[in-house]
Amino acid sequence: MSAAPESAQSRKERRDAALAALVAGVPYARFLGIAIERRGDELTALLPFQPSLIGNPLIPALHGGATAAFLEVTAIIELAWSALIEDEAAIDPARLPRMPKTIDFSIDYLRPGLPRDAYARARVNRSGRRFASVHVEAWQDSRARPFATATGHFLMPGGAGAGDG
C-alpha cells in the first residue's frame, strides 16, 4: 500500500512517461518511426509513412517486412504494457521490466499497404505466467478494412523457463 494517495493527474503522467520509455527502449521501433498513443486503457500504434517503408516501388506498396515489423512491435508493446499496468504501484518509467520475446508470429496480408500512414491495435487473447497469445490488426483509411492481421505467441519476461538469453 502506498502511503499517500496519488492524484489522477499524477498517475496519468506517470503512466504516459512509462509508456514513452517503453517505446523509446526499442531502437527498431524508432528506426521505423513508430509512435504509440494511449486513450485510457487502449493503445494505438502509428506508423507514419516514409518512402523507406516501400517494398515494391512500382505499385507502390508498403514492404511486407515493414508491415510485419509494425504488427510485431505493436503486439509486444501492448503485451508489455498490459503486464505493466496490472501492478499500478510498480510502474516506474526509470525501471521498466524486460520485454516479452516472440516465439512465433503469423501474418495475413489482406490487401496492399498503401503509401500513407498506418495504424494498429493489439488484443491480448491470453496472458499466462510464461506464455501469451496476442492478435493484432493494422489498417489505414478504415478500421473495418484491415490490410494485415497477425497472431503471435510470446515468452513473458521473468516467467519460469524464460531467459535463455
Partner: peptide, 19 residues
Amino acid sequence: ARFVGDPETGVIHGGAVSA
C-alpha cells in the same frame, strides 16, 4: 544498432529478421 529490439542485450528485433 538501429535494428535492435532490446538494448540491454543488443539482440536484433524479430521484425528486422522478418523483413
